[in-house]
Amino acid sequence: MTDARTIDYDKMVPHVRAAPYPLLFATISGAHLYGFPSPDSDFDLRGVHLLPLKTVVGLEDGEQPIEREGVYDGLEIDLVTHDVGKFFGLMLKRNGYVLEQVFSPLIVHSTPEHEELKSIAQGCITRHHAHHYLGFAATQWKLFAKETPPRVKPLLYVYRVLLTGIHLMRSGEVESNLVTLNENARLSYIDELIDCKQTGPEKGTLDAADLEFHTHEFERLVRQLEEAHEQSELPEIPSARPALNDLLVRIRLNGCGE
């Protein structure tokens, strides 16, 4: 499991400060958040920026999204941010990916509004987020299955996505770290796959003979997620729209981090 204390956040701050607009937050996503970074994994930073008021009230959409890549003190960093209005709209859809960014414990930059947003975001979670994770898992499985030989990295993404979805349906909690998720799932092969990726190169591969086993596991976990969706007591629709709207108006008028 990635320990937040072992990440050198200070090296990432210059990249975040160079963003063209004020940031509501910037958190670490990708393999570091998911608990299986390789020695050569880059840092995927995701967040929310605030476009100038004169831009959003006019006819132009502004720059959407903003992507910045660079190497800072030896760290390869990829920063992608969306304007606050766009991001809040995504939160009201069945988009688990943006919720994972909000709740990421690996925080490079935060504001009081980010803390408020984390509280509001709980009201964005619905049982229909299962569809996001089912679709995401299917896409990742296609990436895994089409390669010869199959790589460990996309397979870990498959399992991470499925276990995140199952956990969300059962608990209402957004958990992205595969190591933490596997404490409950207890899939004996997860630790071995993570070790293979972390101790080897980013493009580490599997024996093709393992494909049949993982195909059965993929199908089993898909069924488990579908069942968790059917049995979930999460709400049908988000309740957070009024609170998100109020926060958005305040941020537009007053800025963030004040």
Rank of each mutant, 00 (worst) to 15 (best):
T55A: 04
K153N: 05
I125F: 06
L79H: 11
R250T: 06
L79M: 14
V102W: 06
A208F: 01
P149L: 06
L206V: 11
D191H: 14
T81I: 07
I77E: 09
R127C: 02
E116A: 00
L117Y: 00
E219H: 08
V56G: 06
H114M: 00
P14A: 05
V222C: 10
L155I: 04
V158I: 13
G70R: 09
L168M: 14
P52R: 03
L50I: 15
G58E: 04
H167F: 12
Q198R: 15
V13E: 06
L99R: 05
M1E: 11
T55Y: 07
G204S: 15
L244F: 09
L59A: 07
Y159G: 07
I194T: 11
G62Q: 10
P52V: 02
N254K: 12
E233T: 14
V98G: 09
W141Q: 09
M1D: 11
G30C: 05
A19F: 02
A4D: 07
A138L: 09
N254C: 12
A26W: 00
H109E: 03
F103I: 01
H82F: 14
L75K: 04
G74A: 12
P65Y: 13
V16L: 00
Q140Y: 13
V98E: 07
V108T: 03
S239K: 12
D73V: 06
L33A: 04
